[in-house]
């Protein structure tokens, strides 16, 4: 059941994104930025967390989750330590995933050659 929910929700987000790509002049980079901002906005109103509880990876795997994590980090940071906490909070929540992406990206970029 969890798998089906993840599949349906994640698939739906991607299908909606595909409509945007096919029907507009936006590029994939634009689409990723839009989704992150959308995720952040939904998270601000507290609706993203329930989505991750219901749909699991269906809501956690899309990049919109990145916006959610950043936003929650800012909110929690502010509650803990005011403005300084808000500035720290965003990146500290996302640090693990971002760090992994940079380290893997560097390693693979160094080891492999583009094939085209």
């Amino acid at each position: 059941m969890n798998f089906l929910l993840a599949f349906l929700f994640g698939g739906t987000i991607c299908a909606l994104g595909q409509i945007v790509l096919d029907k507009s002049k936006l590029t994939q980079a634009d689409l990723m930025v839009i989704l992150v901002v959308l995720g952040s906005l939904i998270s601000t109103f507290g609706f993203y967390e329930p989505l991750t509880r219901i749909f699991g990876a269906g809501a956690m795997a899309p990049v919109s989750n990145f916006g959610h994590i950043l936003t929650q980090g800012v909110i929690q940071g502010f509650n803990r330590a005011g403005f300084l906490g808000a500035l720290e909070g965003g990146l500290s929540q996302a640090a693990a995933v971002l760090g992994a992406a940079i380290v893997f990206g560097f390693g693979i970029g160094f080891l492999f050659r583009p094939k085209g």
Binding site: C14, D22, Q28, A29, L31, M32, V63, G105
Partner: peptide, 21 residues
Amino acid sequence: GGAGSAIPITGFANSIVAPAM
């Protein structure tokens, strides 16, 4: 896959590794 491979976080990784290579 188009958007289907760009939207998941794997696509984010792809967008870092591809220019790195």
